[in-house]
Design a protein around this nucleic acid. Structure first.
Length: 528
RNA sequence: GGGGGUGUAGCUCAGUGGUAGAGCACCUGCCUUUUAAGCAGGCUGUCGAAGGUUCGAUCCCUUCCACCCUCACCA
């Protein structure tokens, strides 16, 4: 130990001009423990351990297990450690829960006691013993034997204050997960929600399929794509922005119910609600229209919420959202009239523009009638839709893949579902008339020329597919990350994505690998 | 992209125009049922980066970087 101090002093002297990193000292102390353990013939990184229980199971069945004096083997990370002379209390946490363990010198013996004395917060151990309750009533494992399973070199965040710096939480998600158990709960729920939806769709006869992420032409949504290049083919390619066009080709091919869990990519700004890569589910159902889709979507959400929580009402921020069907259904134009008193049904582009201006909107980029109506709707209606509400019958100009409304060809059979003022899904009676689809693409082409960076390019092969004949089809897409936010009461998308997109590391930070590199060099010099 | 804010020890945070502090963590003692254990002692900093003003900058100014909030657009 005195040698350790000398080393530190040496380092302080020789590196007076160097950068001092206190973290390096902390890591060095832990690294020296690794070397010391090896000297004692203890492998700090052994190969396996067989626990008998997860901690939550032990706590659940505690009385019975304690009564029977059953020998329990647990693994976990040391989160707290208190020395009491010739005994220790500590908390270890595994994937499920945390529990207190107790070590007594005269129970575990000198070797194990000294080993545990060397261990740090963050080390992963396996321990075996029986259960008891302490004087103060805490359920505890009395350790008889103990094994180090992995030595931790990096100190843990503060045991009480935790890790709150959002940047560090996202960049080092592992540290976030170690120290903030509620974070791991959110992601467990995320996994369960996806499983529930998958089972729901499979049980309804939908076939789960996979389509290309790497595409020669993007489409199926309004967004700017990421571009990339295939070297051997010498071909520019796009990362998909939506799965729609490939899934509909499968409907043409004869499948009548398909769906895909899609990772999509959009080259746009990122904020509370947007990550450049995100997840959607898209499904297509032959011989159905958008009303059928609405009923099924309602059912899917009802089922998911109820399976998860056993109730239809869940909190989101200040609101309580009620998922009990039927959800409210209103048309886009009708909802505008309800909020503003203006009926856009029979207004021309120029008349609509006038009304929009009168309502106080910036009308600069509103290049057609549909865009005007959409803008008014977004400004005056969207934020008010807290309880689940279908908004239906969008203008044809902003819905190039949706079938024209059976009663009004200025509109399409399309709905979006809104919950908590956020779009939770988008569905159409899919456009299956190849000639109409071609015309829509041509209109989109015009919009691109007019500077609309999100308009869709003409997809010749998709037109070819439709020309073979696609049955009447209802389609739906919904953002999984947004849904997870809603169902877990999270308010930023970064809290439901393990690794949200971040800019490159900041300057001035010293990576841990650099500290380890220095230690490695020191150790190699010593052995020479 | 526009506007506002933040960046100080491994973590959570104070603070000052004269090169910096607390709690936790860490190290050394004591303590065989503790509870954010306690007690005694100790170690720890490119004060986000670069430049400028100044005798002197962590603090004032400029630029840059990262993060957060917000507005505009996409899910």
């Amino acid at each position: 130990m005195s040698e350790m101090k000398k080393n530190q002093n040496d380092q302080n002297q020789k590196s007076e001009s160097d950068v001092q990193i206190p973290l390096a000292d902390l890591i060095k102390i832990r690294r020296e423990k690794v070397l010391k353990l090896r000297e004692l013939n203890i492998n700090p990184y052994p190969y396996r351990y067989e626990p008998t229980h997860h901690i939550d199971k032990v706590l659940k069945d505690f009385d019975a297990l304690a009564e029977k004096e059953e020998v329990i083997r647990l693994t976990g990370r040391i989160m707290l450690k208190r020395k009491m002379g010739k005994s220790f209390f500590a908390h270890i946490r595994d994937m499920s829960q945390a529990v207190q363990i107790y070590l007594k010198l005269d129970v575990v013996g000198r070797e194990t006691f000294d080993l545990f004395n060397m261990l740090d917060l963050g080390d992963i151990i396996g321990c075996e013993g029986t259960l008891f309750v302490t004087k103060t009533g805490e359920r505890t494992l009395r350790v008889k034997s103990l094994e180090l399973l992995s030595k931790s070199l990096h100190p843990l965040p503060d045991k009480h204050a935790g890790l709150t710096d959002v940047e560090t939480r996202y960049r080092r998600r592992y540290a976030d997960l170690i120290i903030n158990p509620e974070v791991r709960e959110v992601f467990i729920k995320r996994s369960r929600i996806i499983k529930i939806i998958r089972e729901f769709l499979n049980s309804r006869g939908f076939l789960e399929v996979e389509t290309p992420i790497l595409q020669p032409l993007y489409g199926g949504g309004m967004a700017r794509p990421f571009t990339t290049h295939h070297e051997k083919l010498d071909m520019d390619m796009y990362l998909r922005i939506a799965d729609e066009l490939y899934l509909k080709r499968l409907i043409v091919g004869g499948y009548d119910k398909v769906w895909e869990y899609c990772k999509d990519f959009r080259n746009e700004g990122l904020d509370r609600l947007h990550n450049p890569e995100f997840s959607m589910i898209e499904l297509y159902w032959a011989n159905a229209d958008y009303r059928d889709i609405a009923r099924m979507f309602e059912d899917l959400l009802r089922h998911t919420v109820f399976t998860l929580y056993g109730t239809y009402k869940i909190p989101y921020g200040d609101h309580e959202i009620d998922f009990e069907p039927p959800f409210r259904w209103m048309t886009m134009i009708g909802s505008i009239e309800q909020q503003t008193g203006v009926d856009f049904t029979d207004l021309s582009y120029e008349q609509a523009l006038e009304k929009a201006k009168a309502l106080g909107l910036d009308t600069e980029n509103l290049i057609n009638r549909g865009k005007v109506i959409e803008a008014v709707w977004e400004a005056k209606v969207e934020k008010k839709l807290i309880q689940p509400t279908f908004v239906a019958d969008f203008p044809v100009e902003i819905s190039p893949l949706a079938k024209k409304h059976r009663e009004d060809d200025r509109l399409t059979e399309r709905f979006e579902l809104f919950i908590a003022a956020q779009e939770m899904g988008n569905a159409f009676s899919e456009l299956n008339d190849p000639m109409d689809q071609l015309e829509r693409f041509l209109q989109q082409g015009k919009a691109i020329e007019d500077g609309d960076k999100e308009a869709q390019p003409l997809d010749d092969d998709f037109i070819t597919a439709l020309s073979y004949g696609m049955p009447p089809t209802g389609g739906l897409g919904f953002g999984i990350d947004r849904l997870i936010m809603l169902l877990t009461n999270q308010h930023t998308i970064r809290d439901v994505i393990f690794y949200p997109q971040m800019k490159d590391y900041r300057e001035g930070t010293v990576p841990v690998s650099k500290i380890l590199m220095q230690l490695l060099e020191e150790e190699q010099k010593k052995t020479e």
